[in-house]
């Protein structure tokens, strides 16, 4: 009985509902990871695939960083759980007959977002390192299109992490009186600056997902022999 109440307080009805969106999402996650395992591709001509930087083992951490991110939370609560699907009153797909627990039961784990942020920040330098490696892999400095794409991916990921709400809280969201604090005005301007980035957090979140998948596909294309790389150094 006690276990039942415990489970009841832990497992949200969102996960128990017959919901094709949720089931298909789980299938998608599992098969996605499966494919990454099926086609390991750590390096090609000096390009390190972003999914493997520094190792494919960090993919779950990055995944959890994404799943607990406030931007993606909005999207999967809307589009996977339909709570609600849209703001329009007639098209929202939520209803009074559906049970709802929000972020109270199991989804309280989303509150650990800041730890995944810390882990994410630790991983970030590897993307820049891989960009550097791609420049010098032939022994001398060569700038290729792929390197630029790696850089683009690294920058997108950096912007996404830098615009994070948890980071915003750490920088100054918790401070109510900058006037009373050490270096208050400098910290407030840092906070304001980060707030501007934060305003585009959703864009950065999706853009970085787009680039990481695009770069991955691009490198796999290269590996399969598609003639899509350019040596920019030669053009210049």
């Amino acid at each position: 009985m006690a276990i039942k109440t415990l489970l009841n307080s832990m497992i949200p009805s969102e996960l128990l509902e017959p919901n094709w969106r949720l089931l298909s999402f789980i299938v998608l996650l599992i098969s996605g990871i499966g494919v990454l395992m099926l086609y390991p591709m750590s390096e090609f001509h000096g390009y390190v695939d972003p999914f493997y930087a520094p190792t494919v083992l960090v993919v779950p951490i990055a995944g959890l960083f994404r799943l607990t991110c406030y931007a993606y939370r909005k999207d999967y609560h809307r589009h996977v759980f339909n709570h609600p699907n849209a703001c329009g009153i007639n098209i929202r797909g939520d209803s009074m007959t559906r049970d709802y627990s929000g972020e109270t039961k199991f989804f309280r784990v989303e509150n650990l977002h800041r730890y995944f942020l810390y882990a994410g920040i630790l991983i970030l330098p590897f993307f820049y390192y891989d960009f550097y490696i791609s420049l010098i892999y032939s022994g001398s400095f060569v700038l290729r299109l792929g390197s630029l794409l790696l850089l683009l991916n690294a920058v997108a990921l950096t912007l996404w992490a830098a615009s994070c709400h948890a980071l915003r809280h750490l920088i100054g969201g918790r401070t109510d009186c900058y006037g009373c604090a050490f270096a208050g005005s400098q910290r407030k301007s840092l906070f304001n600056w980060q707030s501007i980035l934060n305003g585009h957090h959703e864009f950065f979140a999706w853009f970085s997902l787009l680039t990481i998948i695009f770069v991955d596909l691009y490198l796999r294309g290269l590996a399969a022999g598609m003639p899509i790389d350019l040596n920019l150094s030669k053009l210049l």
């Binding site: 909005k74 709570h83 609600p84 703001c87 627990s101 929000g102 109270t104 305003g199």
Partner: peptide, 22 residues
Amino acid sequence: LGFCNITKCCQEVCPEGIKITD
């Protein structure tokens, strides 16, 4: 507050443009 799942509809409809969620 735990029941809010930050789907941001409040922010979308605010006539004063207050960034309620963010």
